[in-house]
């Protein structure tokens, strides 16, 4: 038998090896190349020279890039908090003894199925045409203007993100709620923990694993916010809603900032890793404490 010569049958090596080589070539190599380009002045074509840390200097001093970081952090923070609050309420509601339960669950999960781009276009129209029409009907100047063209465009993007993002988070919280033993509630009721008090003291701590998943995935995906901005504002008005991901695409591929934006991407990578690892550490410690 072959297995005697090999500690592990070669078929396994071939099966994984092919995938590993392809993954290395098309995922890791671009990643390493990106790191490499970030120390050059390459434009994506033609000659290049090493420029040391100059691109990183630009990332940390360019006003547009810094404001993109500020926008992205603010967006990720606000969206993560709001999406999780709304999702918690929805999950509790949808886990209560309500009529049409499976129908309602299906309806609230629907946004997950729809591509973010088209959702963005539809809400573009709602903010740009439907709400102003209603605003004119009630003679409100504030409602009559398109929020996407104003300095409040940020909140419109957050709204659409909540609309689309709650589906997934709610589903995870519902699964967490289902895993909670009903006897715990009965014991809590004997101790006088009901309603709001029960939620804070009993339900929420027991949802710790779901909370960890949602927090980590939310922050990571909202730091990468892209589709809804491309659909709704394209980064405007001005550059006020330009996220880091949008900036990498727009400036990196169209505006001759290829090398600077690869440096920006490396910084973004470090930011995402640091935040994710930090979150996992803190949240898992919390899980241990409450579990």
């Amino acid at each position: 038998m072959k297995a005697k010569h090999w500690k592990v049958n070669p078929v396994y090596y071939i099966g994984v090896g092919i995938m590993a080589i392809l993954f290395f070539t098309f995922h890791t190599v671009p990643f390493l190349k990106g790191v490499f380009y970030s120390f050059t002045d390459w434009k994506g074509f033609g000659d290049w020279n090493f420029v040391g840390l100059k691109n990183y200097g630009v990332v940390f001093s360019n006003k547009d890039i810094l404001s993109a970081y500020f926008f992205t952090f603010k967006f990720a923070l606000v969206s993560t908090i709001l999406v999780n609050i709304v999702s918690l309420f929805l999950a509790c509601g949808l886990s209560a003894n309500v009529r049409f339960k499976s129908f309602l669950r299906g309806v609230y999960f629907l946004p997950y199925m729809l591509g973010m781009l088209i959702v963005g276009f539809v809400f573009n129209f709602i903010f740009g045409n439907l709400i102003p029409e209603l605003g004119r009907a009630v003679k409100s100047d504030a409602l009559s203007t398109n929020i996407l063209g104003s300095s409040h465009a940020f909140w419109a993007i957050v709204f659409v993100t909540i609309w689309a993002g709650c589906a997934f988070d709610t589903l995870i919280y519902m699964a967490g709620l289902q895993a909670i033993d009903k006897e715990i509630y009965e014991a809590a009721a004997l101790d006088g923990a009901i309603g709001w008090k029960r939620f804070i003291r009993v339900t929420f701590p027991l949802l710790a694993p779901s909370f960890t998943i949602n927090m980590v995935l939310s922050v990571k995906s909202y730091l990468m916010v892209y589709d809804q901005i491309m659909a709704m504002t394209g980064g405007g008005p001005g550059k006020s809603t330009t996220s880091i991901a949008v900036m990498i695409y727009k400036q990196g591929l169209g505006h001759g900032q290829f090398a600077v934006q690869t440096a920006n991407a490396v910084v973004l990578f470090i930011v995402v890793v640091v935040i994710s690892v930090f979150q996992l550490r803190v949240l898992e410690k919390r899980e241990e404490k409450v579990g």
Binding site: F23, F258, A265, V272, S276
Partner: peptide
């Protein structure tokens, strides 16, 4: 195999936009 496991899992931390520009060229 152990090394490959951690290799693939750690790639979960690389957001797509980080490799986007070099990927276009490649």
């Amino acid at each position: 195999f152990s090394v490959l496991y951690y290799y693939f899992i750690s790639a979960l931390f690389i957001p797509f936009h980080v490799i986007m520009l070099p990927l276009v060229v490649q």
